[in-house]
């Protein structure tokens, strides 16, 4: 099987978020860049699929030079080769253009059986690129798959389970298809030391965005920047939610103990009823 994984690099949102002086973007200075956590599930699922059915895993990623590090990580986990769509003006691009460019490059790379993507990127959290790629390629997709039940390459179909609000659903999909990966579908492996060594020699093709042929896919040079966006960020605020911070503690040590427990419970119920008015 030929298996593709669309992998993105993201800001580690564990860090404190600072708005840049322009007010419409997040200051990325000093931020750590990591593989998008959902995409780790996608890479793992792809490698497991290859281990079961044979074939190759190809990583596709778009972004500036820094994303090569993330690509190498995916190769070290066990992917076979990678395509890097290199774009230095990347910061201002909107999700729509990202999906379009990635889809067009996938089309050029020949036939494939299955594509895995993450459900969303954790910095922008746009949550649309995976589904959009499937639409651009004219292939079916199953989003938010909690479990790939079965892949049958000969019959050209896959069976996937997804959790839906209030239950679950099992879907049979024709190959080639695209699957978007949420949390908890598998346990991503760490790259081993030999894996990391090997990754350095695995083929990595760099495609400058200028070679994409933007006009052919209905984009212009503007599309890669703010000017051509369909949706643009005009302002970013870091919400300062003011919490009341009324914490009931014990007398002698922080934990409430003995008789304090009863009075703490009583006080909390009272606060919730009379002050917060939520019960």
């Amino acid at each position: 099987m030929k298996i593709l994984v669309v992998v993105s690099q993201t800001q580690d949102t564990e860090a404190k978020i600072k708005v840049s002086s322009s007010g419409d973007s997040v200051d990325t200075g000093g931020m750590k860049w990591i593989m998008n956590p959902y995409d780790e599930f996608a890479v793992e699922e792809a490698i497991q699929t290859k281990e079961k059915h044979g074939g190759e895993v190809v990583i596709v990623s778009m972004g500036p030079a820094r994303v090569v590090e993330t690509i190498r990580q995916a190769l070290a986990m066990g992917a076979d080769s990678a395509i890097h769509i290199a774009d230095d003006s990347f910061a201002d691009i909107d999700s729509f253009a990202v999906g379009k460019v990635i889809a067009s490059e996938i089309k050029k790379s020949g036939e494939f059986d299955i594509i895995f993507t993450g459900m969303k990127i954790i910095d922008e959290e746009s949550g649309q690129v995976g589904v959009q790629i499937a639409e651009e390629l004219g292939i079916p997709h199953v989003s938010l798959v909690s479990k790939v039940v079965e892949i049958d390459p000969a019959a050209k179909k896959a069976v996937c389970q997804k959790e839906i609000d209030g239950g679950h659903m099992v879907v049979e999909v024709q190959l080639p298809c695209l699957i978007t990966c949420p949390d908890a579908m598998n346990e991503p492996r760490y790259a081993s030391l030999p894996g990391i060594m090997k990754a350095k020699k695995k083929p990595l093709k760099e495609v400058p965005v200028a070679d994409i042929g933007l006009e052919e896919i209905g984009l212009t040079a503007d599309s890669l920047g703010k000017a051509g966006a369909r949706v643009k960020t005009v302002e970013i605020k870091v919400p300062e939610i003011q919490r009341k911070l009324k914490i009931i503690k014990g007398q002698d040590e922080p934990m409430v103990k003995g008789a304090e427990v009863e009075s703490a419970a009583e006080e909390l119920v009272k606060l919730l009823r009379e002050e917060a008015k939520v019960i």
């Binding site: 708005v19 997040v26 959290e125 369909r230 005009v234 970013i236 870091v238």
Partner: peptide, 16 residues
């Protein structure tokens, strides 16, 4: 909407 693990709230404007 929320972004960055809900630590930021961007305003998004639609364009043409």
């Amino acid at each position: 909407r929320f972004s960055h693990s809900s630590k930021a709230i961007p305003t998004k404007l639609f364009l043409d």
